[in-house]
């Protein structure tokens, strides 16, 4: 299956998909030391997103999500890429600052609700520079 998304921050990434329809706050939700999702109320709680492609509709809650994602990028525990259902300013800002600071933006792609609903955890995905997502 191939999906065509809107590019928020361009880049290439490959990895296993980790998908939830529930929005996520990285603050209180993501441990940057490990890449584990720690929000006990979130369906992905206990799973590790480091190096995987994380798909959540948008960020919930705290404005510190960006700070935590930046720490994860520096620590090497960030998702390989993030897919959302709408452009998310928090993910965008963290990716831009990571680019300014370390030359390491996290690729960000936004899909329509319908396309997002086709994603399943465990699938293997490859994101290309043009925003195409190839799923196997």
């Amino acid at each position: 299956m191939e999906l065509s998304g809107q590019i928020i921050e361009a880049g290439e990434a490959s990895g296993e998909l980790l998908v939830s329809a529930e929005p996520l706050s990285f603050w209180g939700g993501y441990d940057y030391h490990t890449g584990n999702i720690i929000d006990q109320r979130h369906p992905l709680a206990g799973l590790c997103a480091a190096g995987r492609i994380l798909a959540v509709p948008f960020t919930r809650g705290s404005s510190s999500t960006t700070a935590v994602l930046l720490e994860a990028i520096k620590a090497g525990t960030a998702p390989a890429a993030i897919i959302t259902t709408a452009p998310d300013s928090f993910f965008a800002l963290a990716s831009i600052v990571a680019d300014e600071m370390y030359g390491k933006p996290v690729p960000l792609i936004s899909l329509s609700d319908g396309q997002f609903a086709l994603l399943q955890s465990g699938q293997s995905a490859h994101i290309k520079h043009d925003g195409t997502i190839k799923i196997q």
Binding site: S63, L70, K74, A75, M101
Partner: peptide, 17 residues
């Protein structure tokens, strides 16, 4: 400014830079 909260080395590096 919410960025004043210390989370780790990256945020500190950004502020000090």
């Amino acid at each position: 400014i919410d960025s004043s909260v210390y989370f780790g080395p990256a945020g500190l590096e950004f502020a000090e830079r």
